[in-house]
Amino acid sequence: MVDREAAGRGCPNEGGGRPVIPQNPARISAPSYCVGIIHYQSYADLESCLGAVAGQTLRPRAVRVVDAGADTDALVKIRDRHPGVAFEAAANRGYSAAANRLLAWASGPDVGADFCLLLNPDVTLEPDFGQRLVDALAARPDAALGTGKLLRPDRLTLDSAGIALPAHRRTRDRGSEQHDRGQYDRGEYVFGASGAAMMLRCAALADLALEGEVFDEDFFLYHEDTDLSWRAHVLGWRVYYEPLARAVHARGWKKGQRFRVPPAVRRHSFKNYYLQLIKNESAAGFLLRLPVLLAWEVLRLGHAAIRDPQILPAYVDAWGLAGRAFHKRRILRARRARRPNRGAR
């Protein structure tokens, strides 16, 4: 259960004085945002996503798609129907690399938006999504990240109401698979925001980046959003959930459909659990939760060995990247140590 007044139960309570960011009075009165979409071979979804973006009551300053697909003809047809959207072809280096390209564009001089909304193409926004989330974050300068209420296509089942961080550190979408009864209809600070529909404060990007990467490209995909959310907390930022910003998320990886996901993708999810733990968990937090973490690891290993042996090479992958993860941890901890009032948050 996430604390509804603070960053949330299970959130790393490490403090870290948030850097003071100069405010532009003009932007305070009229905040702006841009939209970046990470696309890979889901052209029908992309068409719906772009249509919903075009219908926003608060129009984005610019829209850009990073495309790693392979169907040139399908993409050309979509480009013709959306002449105001910029398309960038890129090699498939995963969600993290594509998202970083979009954030570099969003914070550059050609766009200069206050916020950047990153979307998966299987997300369809309600018309006031952008307005609701921009207003929520503009009113809360301590929030670097934000998200809204994501629903499944039936619009009755919750997909994500923000992300929680349990004691075993395997992050969970709040409310996932639950019937939407209004139980998450209160705006609040949460642990994390889903990368399917995450809004980022552009003025915070330089502070959040480690070695030039806002999203860790070693993750490739899965848990890069929770890694970033955790890092934001370590550095003294917060994450806000705005339930009035609603969207539909079709979601490719659903409960009970694990084995429809290619083994290589499942391995990324498995290995990234360890990478984000190495990078972000405090020494005190690790020792405090060691019994829970060890019990969870026994369950993970048993499940992998018996039910899903194809993901066992993820242990080798995680080991190979552990050195880099520890290096990034040292950078993050040094940055946090330089923050004033890091004991109070």
Rank of each mutant, 00 (worst) to 15 (best):
A193W: 00
R335I: 04
P83T: 07
E217T: 10
D45M: 09
G16C: 08
S229Q: 02
Y95I: 11
D308V: 04
S229C: 04
A304F: 07
D216R: 04
D135G: 06
E217K: 07
Q131E: 13
R339H: 12
R342C: 11
V123L: 05
P243M: 00
L221D: 11
A139S: 04
F129S: 04
K271D: 01
G8K: 01
G285N: 06
K271C: 03
R172V: 10
R251E: 15
R231M: 02
R300W: 08
A91D: 14
A344I: 15
C116Y: 08
R339M: 12
G195E: 04
G51N: 10
P19K: 06
C49H: 03
I163R: 09
D110G: 12
L332H: 06
S29A: 15
V265Y: 10
P309A: 03
S96G: 06
D135C: 09
C49W: 02
P12V: 05
G94F: 08
L125E: 01
T171E: 05
Q178V: 05
Y189C: 12
R27E: 08
P127Q: 01
T226C: 00
K254L: 14
P166V: 13
A97D: 14
P31T: 04
A344F: 15
N92W: 14
F191W: 06
H327M: 04
L244Q: 15
P12M: 12
H268D: 11
L293E: 06
F220H: 03
L58C: 03
A196H: 10
V261I: 13
A209Q: 10
T226I: 02
D45C: 14
A97M: 12
S194D: 14
H233D: 01
P127V: 05
G51A: 13
A143Q: 00
D185K: 06
R231I: 03
L50D: 06
A161K: 10
R132A: 05
A106S: 12
K255M: 13
R324L: 14
A318D: 00
P83C: 10
G16S: 08
T57A: 12
A196F: 11
E47L: 15
A250L: 11
L312E: 06
S282G: 12
A193S: 13
R335C: 08
L221T: 13
R152M: 15
P22W: 07
R170H: 13
V53I: 07
I306M: 09
D154K: 03
G146F: 00
R169C: 08
E242M: 02
P60Y: 07
P153M: 02
V85A: 05
F215Y: 15
Q131P: 01
L277Y: 11
R9E: 10
L75F: 09
G55K: 11
A264C: 12
V63S: 10
A30H: 15
R59A: 12
A167M: 12
R329P: 03
R267L: 09
T147A: 01
A305N: 07
A30K: 13
H303V: 09
G8H: 01
